[in-house]
Design a protein around this nucleic acid. Structure first.
Lengths: 252, 252
DNA sequence: ATTTGTCAGCTTGTCTGACAAATCCTGCAA
DNA sequence: TTGCAGGATTTGTCAGACAAGCTGACAAAT
């Protein structure tokens, strides 16, 4: 019977493969900050003090602090010092933290990430159906037409597909939602480029995807949030199915 | 009439306040990688070459590469060199990238982030209603009872509230979704700690929240995804309203 | 008494040179 | 062809130095 503990520590968990001294020092400092030893706005010990405290060179200290800077934990000001960032909760979300070790996502992981993308796209489609402006509809129709055109040429339509999804994101009028959706889309296009052969898109699968796009476009045009959400979710689910099917084909 | 361009560059946009040479160099290298100049697995120029190419010291080069490492763009192996990460799409998602400059989120930003959280929680609740096991239901009921108990004592029930949401995340059986929900929850608890006074929770607002929790628990127990999603979304919306109300009260 | 100018000390940013550790590559011997 | 030794290459770490910017104290002027 597992007790319902909060898995919040996973988010900022240190990468186990910490390379070298600087990563270890960065981990110790981050742990101190999370433990509340240094509150938001507090000044960290100077580089000199850290050098003496941990018996490492200044290069190591600087690299560790640089890591904390890019992680959003601390900010530095030349001549003043290093300070804990005022907004500790706004650290980065590392979706890859759990599986940074293995080469690629396994099938179960991939299904989970697809599911996450489906949730996001569905929510975004619902909002788009409620908020789309005339300009949004024009952009959506333009992207859709571009895909129609790509369907009849040799182009696999990947760029047009991205434009369509971006137009949906614009219509939802929520930059954070759009940002996260773009992040996931980039993730998938990168994975796709590694595992799919370009020719796999030229068959009937793109026609099926276009039908799903049409359903989504119609629902957003009608202003039907439920139908838009369902269409977007269905589109992602189908894409996941096509992904798996293509993945099982021989590589040649 | 804005053309429907892809806002994917926003994700990894360089922070405008780039401090110093190393940040500039890191930006240039990241741009090269994004532009496809170096593909996944390719080896970057050696530190020595970069020193000559950009007329900076090796410390600057190393700090720039360290930044790219923590950003997930490159990996280094001692004696071998620096290589573009094989999974470029798995870089970090920086929810704070757009407003890293200002002190806190303004009201519009906050509403957008609440909306994002509502989408995530709703999708998670739908999945929880479909997949909850007997153990999940037991954990949910335990967390709910804990909140009931906290309601009658002086405890503001924040810990129990977190446990309940964590139990919902567990019941959804999707680690990525749970991870992102936990990230957002942490973000909000951090913001709440800065702006709310603890006493603000002891009034009737917690009772209202508990009623929303009951609706969510019932829907998940019944296995009704639609109702669970609606309940979760409503809960977040109401929480946003309570947040705004508390925010407008005088600080004393 | 308050404001302003100056300066000394401190802290981070950058540069230089060196050595250690790990990897890669070449050539030689079996 | 295979195996291994050894040099060359590359990143990791160290040490010292100067430049750039900030802070606080003190003196001078209003």
């Amino acid at each position: 019977m597992p007790s319902p503990t909060i898995p919040v520590d996973l988010i900022l968990a240190e990468l186990p493969r910490s390379t070298g001294l600087s990563a270890m020092l960065a981990g110790r400092l981050a742990a101190s900050i999370r433990a509340g030893e240094f509150g938001p706005g507090d000044r960290l010990p100077t580089e000199k003090q850290l050098v003496e405290r941990f018996s490492v060179s200044r290069a190591v200290v600087r690299e560790a602090i640089a890591r904390l800077k890019t992680d959003g934990f601390v900010e530095t000001r030349q001549g003043a010092g290093a300070f804990v960032a005022p907004r500790p909760g706004l650290a980065n979300f590392r979706i890859a933290a759990l599986n940074n070790e293995m080469g690629l996502l396994d099938a179960a992981d991939l299904a989970h990430v697809f599911e996450l993308r489906g949730v996001i796209e569905a929510g975004m489609a619902e909002l788009a159906a409620q908020r789309r402006s005339a300009a949004d509809l024009a952009a959506l129709n333009a992207a859709f037409a571009q895909m129609e055109q790509a369907l009849q040429s040799d182009d696999n339509g990947a760029a047009a597909d991205d434009s369509f999804h971006a137009a949906v994101a614009m219509a939802a009028h929520n930059p954070y939602l759009a940002q996260f959706a773009a992040f996931l889309a980039q993730h998938f296009s990168a994975t796709r480029a590694l595992t799919w052969q370009p020719a796999a898109r030229s068959s009937g699968s793109t026609a099926a995807a276009q039908a799903e796009h049409r359903a989504l476009l119609d629902a957003i045009t009608r202003g039907d949030p439920g139908a838009a959400g369902a269409a977007a979710r269905n589109h992602i689910t189908e894409a996941a199915g096509r992904y798996r099917a293509a993945d099982k084909q021989p590589k040649g």
